[in-house]
Design a binder for these strands. Sequence first.
RNA 1: GCGCCUGUAGCUCAGUUGGAUAGAGUGCAGCCCUGCGAAGGCUGAAGUCGUGAGUUCGAAUCUCGCCAGGCGCGCCA
Length: 550
Amino acid sequence: MSSSAELSKIIKSAIIKAQKDGELPQVDLPEIIIEKPKIDKFGSLSSNIPMILGKTMNCNPMDIAVIILKKIEKNQIIDKWDIAKPGFINVHLSTFQRGKILVDIIKLKDKYGTNSLGQKTKILIEFVSVNPTGPVHVGHARGAVLGSVIANILKFSDFNVSKEYYVNDAGNQIDLFIESIVENIKKILDIDYKIPDDGYKGKYIEEIAQDLIKKISKNNLKDVASAYEKIKKLALEITLDSIKNDLEMLGIKYDNWFSENSLISEGTLKVCLDILDKKDLLYEKDGAQWFKSSQFQTDDDVVLYKSNDEGHTYFSTDIAYHYNKFFIRKYERIINIFGADHHSHVFRIKSALEAFEIDQNKMDTLLTQIVRFKSNNKSERFSKRSGNIYTIRDLLDVVGVDAIRFNFLHRTPESQQEFDIDLAIKESSENPVYYIQYAYARLSSIINSVKFDYSKANLNLLKSTFETNLIETLDLFPEVVVRSAITLQTHLITKYSLDLAKELQIFYENCRVLSEDTELSKARVNLVISSKIVLKNVLNLLGINTPERM
RNA sequence: GCGCCUGUAGCUCAGUUGGAUAGAGUGCAGCCCUGCGAAGGCUGAAGUCGUGAGUUCGAAUCUCGCCAGGCGCGCCA
């Protein structure tokens, strides 16, 4: 258990004791948040709980702080307690506790920082899920990186996580895509063709057409209509492979690729419609079938089956998809990561969940704000249909994968991001990720030159502020993981990685690890080894490489 | 027009139930290697926290108005 978790418990029991003894009023206690003060002189850790209680208890925070301090039981963790205006409790960790932190880290190794928050909860995280109608562009990379790291954080927090890509292999966008390819094939084969006005354009469409001509013999292609199913199957395979490949280059791997079509062929959609029908939530109007979502969370009802027999809407299969997640595969929680342009869709899905009587809290939706593409001072949206694509692959050609990942992870998803390619290239070399990796390589370098036995070290020798600050930063890691698992925020981890790297550099500048003082050297090697473990765990969570050398 | 999101240092962004002197990276002006990696450390300049009001002992944080930008408001996905 981290010091802040211990401290939180200690303070809580002190408050409860004071309440029992009648020295503090009986009120419900909020979560006791422990944080590291920004300024060193305020100690290792602090809590503002007296100020929070001051409000609910209607007392002076400073008086409350004094009472809490009196009730705190003796322990080995804290060396010194302070009270500061206007009502902070500040603590200084004991040398014993700092030593224990290092021992714990070395013992736990790659398990250090894990927690049991999830308790094996079965959770599905779905992200990217772009139509298999072309390459993945930079606009999707954000959700991709975010999703994979949130999955890592949740795994680290004892959730049973599956990462899924929902393949939209049904519906009219796919038909349009295939039609665009078919017409391009005809064009290449010099058959009468007509490329649809609203069809997919761009060089990659022509390339897929060329590729298919190679894969399917020319004889079969003469009658394009009869080869349609084969073309569709192969075209989907080609685009999906390319998507898979691009995402892997970004360091992202999925557990499942879920087919939209299977919801229709396996009858899930029909089951859903029957349930909604039985609840009297469906009706016919203008030749279409509607769902009464306005009874739940939307302003207007939504169409499930289009008029003129044009088939199901995307929304109807998405209802079935969510039904499948909860009732067939029995996920206990799901997380969806969508682009902000899907905002209104979220309320439709929630309406459907409500109709199925699923607890709303079991679904979290993260909306990443649209990444806009900017170059030569022109700002525009990515669009596949217009052929205006800047792909992940294009980006990886000019910016390293670690820099890209850090760039997306280091900001809150709701921040709007204008992706200026010129700026991205310029900043690539000065990306903070290299600072962190540099610190890591330095640690490795020191450890490699250690030639003595450091197992029995006197950790009490680590008492300069450079050393204590570093140890106390290592100690914060488990809490950072918990916090980011609860809030699903990745930037807490990147922020921590920077803080840790900074502490490491300062330690390095001021404390020579390998010196004539063999006892001190032994202790410091233990500190270096602990630091390397923690930094490695942090970077692994972020999916960022840990180079031994740079 | 309605709904959601955003506005903090020149630039890119943090800022945890409202609390200690509003922070980081980068850029700018300087200083520091014949010592485990200078892709580094240190010092400094740089902010009306979009704006106006309100609530509070206390507001970047909460409430309302206004300004600016983004995204939605399809029988597209």
